[in-house]
Amino acid sequence: MKKYNVAILGATGAVGQEFLNLIEERNFPFANLKMLASKRSAGKKIQFMGKEYTVEEATVDSFKDVDIALFAGGSASKEFAPAAVKAGAVVIDNSSTFRMDPEVPLVVPEVNPEAIAQHKGIIANPNCSTIIMVMALKPLYDIAKIKRVVVSTYQAVSGGGKEAMAELEQQVADIVAGKPVTANILPGAALKKHYQIAFNLLPQIDVFKENLYTKEEMKMIDETKKIMSDNDMRITATTIRVPVYRSHAESVNVEFADEVSVEAARKALEAFPGVEVVDNPDEQLYPQPLETSGKNDVAVGRLRKDYSIDHGLNMWVCGDQIRKGAALNALQIAEYMIEKDML
């Protein structure tokens, strides 16, 4: 099998580390691997598959002879993606920089792989919550057109980065010890106010927009329409940060144009690659963040008819936002391109 030169931008972060885990797990065919990060992380050593790698500072000249550039996300994408493409690499970007660019395909390989062929050097990875939701929506959409989606998310603190996870851990320890609790990270380090997340819920992820939705909520709305190629689909979202370390959960209500039975929905979901149906009320079996953390599949359960509307269905969806919601999805795009000889 042909092997490819791969660069990981953001190699020291959570998504970058997950890229490495998955490259090894999936036996990804790489020839050379370049670890890139910010100036403050340059020089760090990473042990990977029996070899020591030195993290390099990312510059516009870092992508010579690179075939695939996996970008873990963040503001660096805007600066370095054009340089990588100019050097001949295909960029698979996990940031929000290019997602709504009409020239850039926004891809979940199980849902819209045909969009990959339209790329001009950059392919965007959707928002983690969007990926998890559309994995459950697509097999249902193939049965009957979806008119409307109402989604409420329950998003793990790891979506806010390592600092948010550390703050949750510290807050829990302080509460147990009877110490005062401090909050410096959530709902966002760059925001004016911060709140305790331990034993709490925060109904804000990212900044508020003029329409009073948060940026995270609008990402889910706009990205879903683009991925599903359906601008007529009506979507409303409420995104919540919860005191869970890893794996997002979503309550999804779907209104179809025609009747879809629970049995038909279950059958379609069970047959869809990357989806696991965990749905047995008699045995109290349903998806949970603890059960989906570290796993590749998106789990769907609590399937039931919505009796308040015609042609309605409720479901509960859980998925590891660092795996399928980020690193795995990006790597699957690269694997698809290799399989189809698109590199």
Rank of each mutant, 00 (worst) to 15 (best):
S293W: 02
G121E: 03
P203K: 05
T54V: 10
Y307R: 14
N231C: 00
V104A: 04
Q155P: 02
L70A: 06
V176H: 00
L22A: 06
L285S: 10
T292N: 06
I205P: 09
P187I: 04
L9D: 01
E57C: 05
V298I: 11
S261R: 02
N5Y: 04
E276A: 15
H119T: 11
I309C: 12
F208W: 02
S96L: 03
K226S: 13
Q170T: 14
S38C: 12
A271K: 14
I221P: 10
I23F: 10
G121P: 06
K2F: 02
N329K: 00
L22Q: 13
I309T: 13
G294S: 02
N27A: 07
I116F: 06
R99T: 13
H248V: 14
L328W: 05
E56S: 02
Y195C: 03
D206R: 14
E18F: 03
V151S: 11
A326I: 02
P105C: 09
I205Q: 12
L140M: 13
S308G: 07
M337R: 15
V275N: 06
T54C: 00
E223D: 03
A173C: 06
K138G: 04
V317Q: 05
V85A: 04
T12S: 12
F48A: 06
V85K: 02
K295E: 05
E210W: 08
D65S: 05
I221G: 03
L33V: 06
D67V: 08
V277R: 07
I205A: 10
L106D: 08
A166W: 03
M165A: 13
E263V: 13
Q118K: 15
A76G: 10
E210S: 15
A117M: 12
G159K: 07
Y245G: 09
Y213C: 10
L20C: 12
E270A: 11
E335D: 10
V90P: 10
N32E: 15
R304W: 02
I221N: 13
V254P: 08
F208G: 00
A81N: 14
V207K: 13
N127P: 04
E210H: 13
M233T: 11
P289E: 05
M1Y: 03
K86N: 07
A268I: 08
S62Q: 08
S293K: 10
A330C: 09
A14V: 07
N231T: 11
S158H: 12
E56H: 00
M233Q: 12
P281H: 07
N21G: 04
E263G: 09
S251L: 09
P180Q: 10
N314Q: 11
V277Y: 04
N296S: 12
S95H: 06
Q284W: 04
N253G: 05
L201P: 05
A124D: 08
M1H: 09
I338G: 09
N94V: 03
A189N: 01
C318W: 01
V107G: 11
E24I: 03
A327Y: 01
Y141P: 00
L202R: 15
V151L: 07
P82R: 01
D282A: 12
I132R: 07
A249Q: 15
V91Q: 01
A164D: 06
G13T: 00
S62M: 06
V111C: 11
K192Y: 06
F63M: 01
H248N: 15
I309M: 13
S251W: 07
F80D: 05
D93E: 09
N280D: 15
M135P: 04
T12W: 02
V300R: 00
I132D: 01
A42L: 04
G121T: 08
R99S: 12
A327E: 02
G319N: 09
M135N: 10
A271H: 01
